[in-house]
Design a protein around this nucleic acid. Structure first.
Lengths: 348, 348
DNA sequence: ATGAAAGCGCTAACAC
DNA sequence: GTGTTAGCGCTTTCAT
């Protein structure tokens, strides 16, 4: 009591059993009688005993922890990541907790501070990395590191790794089909499509397919460059809306761009959704308060977390290889697209 | 190489020193010659050695980890917390990293899953709890738990604990003074003020003081009840704007409420900021995309993280008692308040 | 179903 | 400045 740490030996004494029985009882071993277990649990409670994770981990070799690293833009405060990544972080922590894992979280954006060796250094049993594809240096550094444990990546710009991604193509089709249903014919894609943004490339692909299936002409992607995605969206919208054959709808590669598009459009005196329909991608909550509220494609965040965690918890390599890599998305109807033509208007 | 774990003994052999020298060299002990250290580091690199955190922690008793728990509303998905708390979580992780600590993050909202014993169970050296004051059960449970280590709370509704909070009173004064400068005279406070929301009570207090100092009449707080703060803001605005002696400005207790207020006002056909000025509190990024962009009081998040971490890293109880508990705030000018009267208009 | 004993890999106290 | 030694508190064989 008054002394230092309470150990399992103290509990054993109090419960009148051996120390190893205490360990087994508290770890939930089926080999222990319910009666014994209760005595042990009672003694532990009385003494205020908690299994020492440090010792348990050393002995067992496991940590019961997943390392989650959020990759930010190089040159920026590592925690200035998008709301999307915070949401994904949250659901990954939740998914980890569901499986009984703790989450060791770190934000990294600078080369000097990269540290992926959580498994090798015995801090975690697996590694989840999520973040912006734009920080290529980070992803390149990551993949040349010997990780020594299961890992999975969201945002990895490289296609040959162990990535998990939203169903970008399907989501884009959903978005574009919704615009087509509203009667739009000249639909522009706003967002830079290049090797740095595989997600955007996938979304553009879905855009193209949906338009071609409808017998409409896909446009070239309108680049939206720059670190500030909202500003990039504004600039791109200014370009697009100044064209002589101006589109009647815009599918933005993500919500940040869409928010900028929305701003610029209304600044130029056009009305959304009447003059022009807009759909984004990512399901950002901020879109709810935009003017008008932004219709968007939202990935199933809870599922995204579960899929990520499933990958690092896979017992075998085969199991990991088989696991899902695509996270389903859904269309979130808000008010930046008018109701479908010749159909029951959707409820808000 | 081909064998199991590489241990410090292997490194010692390779470097031609004793195992404890390896430990000291890699831990940065000043007692080691630069030359020896280099040899050891080289050997460690060659062998792909990493100090095993499990063993290091068991032996030293320290974990180099801070537990950060985010408290959500009971009955909701624990990760559906406000953007405010995600931002605070991020800056706390960053502040921890600044001091060389890892962050063990968990989201908790339900009684069955409460777990605060990170220090007692040897998973962390200190505990930071942040979250909504509304989940009183969680805070009550927390404070009746014997923590065994340093802890600090953001969002704790109880005044006698080890809390850290924004400068709510000062921030409210900033907000109200800004409205007064714009020429507003009848300024309403929207937000429920009761024992469950000490932050709101503090903000109301600042509101009252600022008005009284200006010789204006503070109003009673207009309650904004309900779990959905935005909806509550809408409802409250509907009430307020229907009054015969309707206010010409609204200071909302937080940004979520302010967002609802903004929506409802424009829905009712009033113009912000011309008919009515609005200021929120929290510095939510979503406010940037509101219509019009929401002027708000933003706490210094980076500082908030640092203050929280400083509390749990305090060496002595005295040091902790002396540490700052109030985090400074600033006025973020956006466009929901018109420029000050008879003064140079602020730049956006 | 339980007990005895070994030992995980490191840090720190002590010696020189 | 470096080596020697003990042992952190548990989990896990192995034995009964």
């Amino acid at each position: 009591m008054g002394r230092g740490r309470v150990t399992s030996i103290d509990v054993a004494e109090a419960a009148g059993v051996s120390q190893s029985t205490v360990s087994r009882a508290l770890a939930g071993s089926p080999a222990i009688t319910p009666e014994t277990r209760m005595r042990v649990e009672q003694a532990a409670r009385d003494l205020g005993y908690h299994v020492d994770a440090r010792a348990a981990r050393l002995r067992s070799g496991r940590t019961g922890t997943l390392a989650i690293v959020v990759v930010g833009r190089s040159g920026y405060d590592p925690t200035r990541v998008s709301a999307f990544h915070y949401a994904l972080l949250g659901s990954t922590c939740a998914a980890a907790a569901e499986r009984g894992y703790q989450s060791l979280v770190s934000f990294q954006s600078e080369a000097e501070h990269y540290s992926w060796n959580f498994v090798a250094s015995g801090q975690a049993d697996g590694l989840v990395v999520m973040g912006t594809s734009v920080n290529r240096a980070a992803w390149a550094d990551l993949r040349q590191t010997e990780l020594q444990g299961p890992s999975v990546f969201w945002g990895d710009p490289f296609d040959d790794g162990r990535w998990v991604r939203a169903d970008n193509r399907g989501g884009a089709q959903l978005a574009v089909n919704r615009l087509i249903a509203a009667g739009h014919k000249r639909i522009a894609f706003v967002g830079t499509v290049d090797a740095i943004h595989p997600q955007f490339a996938e979304r553009y692909e879905g855009y193209r397919i949906a338009l071609e299936q409808a017998g409409l002409e896909p446009g070239k992607p309108v680049p939206a460059e720059g670190d500030d995605r909202v500003a990039a969206g504004r600039a791109a919208a200014a370009t697009v809306m100044a064209q002589t054959d101006r589109p009647d709808a815009i599918f933005a590669a993500n919500d940040a761009i869409a928010l900028g598009v929305l701003e610029q459009i209304s600044r130029m005196g056009f009305a959304v959704p009447d003059d022009i329909g807009v759909v984004g991608f990512d399901g950002l909550a901020a879109g709810e308060h935009a003017h008008p509220p932004l219709t968007t494609i939202e990935p199933d965040f809870a599922e995204a977390g579960r899929v990520l965690v499933a990958h690092v918890c896979a017992e075998t390599d085969d199991e990991a290889r088989e696991a899902a890599r695509r996270v389903p998305v859904r269309l979130v109807e808000r008010r930046s697209v008018r109701p479908p033509e010749a159909a029951t208007p959707p409820r808000t």
